[in-house]
């Protein structure tokens, strides 16, 4: 089965429909599937529920889909640094489910692993716990959180082989890994595609069973939200 597609639009062909749920990898602008986000914007698909830790910033990442009003609901943990998001949310135009970051990662991991729910201490005693089942284990109270299954996962990898084994670079692994497992089908964009046999099987982060469609997204112009540096001391 050939997994490599010529571009993002081709890789998403037949997968998009109005009202669908999409899991998107990345943390801030680090490791976001930007080619696939652009192709989703260009497709015009709407009423999306998007599961993503963040919502991009204005005009970058998922911020592009907010601007075009293609997103109906976000499930996220942190959405700062995005004025358009804040405006749509406060105006009641955008539905938001705030989910603690660890709970969000675990909901995707669990959903992808066929686990429909799990108990956690995170959020007990807060509005996150409202309406959820509470249960005591060994004298401590936990709440039930649901696994997430999406119609589609979109992720960004560093290197892939032709079989669809993926490696991530540095802190880009973040949500890409759990998100890749939680969709019925995962489309991945990467910076480099190498022949099978090139990657050490001991160093595969995401085994080939997950990414069913693959595109080469390079060259990338990676964005930095907060460039922070130090000075070299004078010799």
């Amino acid at each position: 089965m050939k997994k490599i597609y010529p571009d993002a639009a081709a890789a998403l062909d037949g997968l998009l429909f109005d009202g669908m749920t999409i899991c998107a990898g990345g943390f801030g602008l680090c490791g976001i599937p930007e080619r696939l986000i652009d192709a989703i914007r260009d497709s015009g698909v709407k009423d999306l529920t998007v599961v993503s830790n963040n919502a991009g910033i204005d005009n970058e990442g998922l911020g592009k889909l907010l601007r075009t009003r293609q997103i109906r609901k976000m499930i996220s943990s942190y959405v700062g640094e995005n004025k358009e998001f804040e405006r749509q949310y406060l105006a009641g135009e955008l539905e938001v489910e705030f989910c603690p970051q660890g709970t969000l990662a675990e909901r995707c991991r669990a959903g992808g692993a066929g686990i429909p729910g799990f108990y956690t201490k995170t959020g007990v005693g807060t509005i996150v716990a409202e309406g959820k089942e509470h249960k005591d284990f060994d004298g401590e109270t936990y709440i039930l959180e649901r696994g997430i299954r999406a119609d589609l996962s979109i992720v960004k990898g560093w290197r892939a082989d032709e079989a669809g084994n993926l490696q991530f670079r540095k802190t880009t692994r973040n949500f890409n890994l759990p998100m890749a497992t939680s969709g019925k089908l995962c489309v991945a964009e990467v910076e480099e595609i190498v022949p099978v046999g090139t990657l050490d099987p001991d160093c595969i982060h995401l085994p080939s069973i997950y990414a069913k469609r693959l595109i080469l997204g390079a060259p990338y112009d990676k964005k930095i939200e907060f460039r922070t540096t130090r000075q070299r001391e004078a010799a």
Binding site: F27, K170, T171, F175, P178, H205, K222, E225
Partner: peptide, 27 residues
């Protein structure tokens, strides 16, 4: 390196002892 940031989205550096993992493992 845009691929190397902290949770505040600031650029950082790695140490000889550093390791990377995904968000589910992190939490």
């Amino acid at each position: 390196d845009p691929d190397l940031i902290n949770a505040g989205k600031q650029t950082i550096s790695e140490l000889p002892s550093s390791s990377y993992f995904d968000s589910a493992a992190s939490f």
